[in-house]
Design a protein around this nucleic acid. Structure first.
Lengths: 142, 142
DNA sequence: CTTCATATTGCAACTCAGTCTCAATTTGAG
DNA sequence: CTCAAATTGAGACTGAGTTGCAATATGAAG
């Protein structure tokens, strides 16, 4: 059970239940993206008794506590990504094979700060998705 | 009826129907974002007989032809924006009042091109959303 | 350790955006 | 004008996500 999420629970006067602990632990084991349905299935497969409702009810708490973030909605369901214990990054997504390249650029971050400053906007977080075609899909294995 | 969309229809061997023309015209009158449901209502209110199904069926064609783009999914439904006849830009979205600030930065575009080059990724398009709090919501009317 | 108000859970019914089926209609090439 | 092929509208359907409620678990106070 993540310490930061535990603190968040206490601060908000919420309760630390087995279901919440199981959900958080399952996400800790995740690398990359996940969606609620898949997370639910994974938990059940691992023997947990959590209900789908609890999974969906826990997600907003995890977002509010800064434990996960919504990343994108390619198809029609939401995707999330753990942010605690990972470094911030943005995504290049191949529209042909679906591959996701994660990248990070300090210059890009600074540039955004400048732009926000100009607009008098206080940046909290951001999502940059670059859609295109990856090298393999362009057939450039040379 | 937009000329480029007309050409697209012909090239693809599709048919130019009254419904499609009405939908395209309705979007031409739009500035800013729209969602399919709202577009549908607007058409009906204006006396059109188009069905919801036709609106939803036309949207993928409009995207494929480059006439509109999906912008973001804040709540659970999709939002689109006309791109033909408008300049490319990105968005700052206030998470408190929902205000959208559109901005454009050539430096940002170039930087992305460089990053893609480094990853050997061919950029087709991108979405940058900066989420945060706008000046008004921070109570800085000074 | 027990009590008890309150938070949380599971279930199942529900909502709502978006999709699909199919018969009826429209389009446009010949 | 004819006719195959595309398109339409209506409404049934799908599936992600939500909600109401009775049953249960949590944890602060005694």
């Amino acid at each position: 059970m993540d310490k930061r999420f535990q603190e968040f629970i206490v601060e908000k006067g919420l309760k630390s239940t087995r279901e919440r602990r199981e959900i958080v632990d399952a996400i800790m084991e995740t690398t990359g993206h996940f969606d609620p349905e898949e997370l639910y299935r994974r938990l059940r497969d691992a023997g947990s008794k959590v209900s789908r409702a609890s999974v969906y009810r826990t997600i907003p708490l995890l977002i509010e506590s800064g434990f996960i973030e919504e990343v994108e909605r390619v198809d029609k369901h939401a995707h999330y990504e753990r942010v605690i214990g990972t470094q911030h990054h943005d995504h290049m997504i191949c529209t042909q094979c679906g591959k996701v390249i994660e990248f990070y650029s300090p210059t890009l971050e600074m540039l955004q700060d400048e732009l926000c400053c100009k607009e008098n906007f206080r940046k909290v977080r951001h999502h940059l998705e670059i859609l295109g075609i990856c090298a393999e899909c362009r057939g450039e294995h040379a």
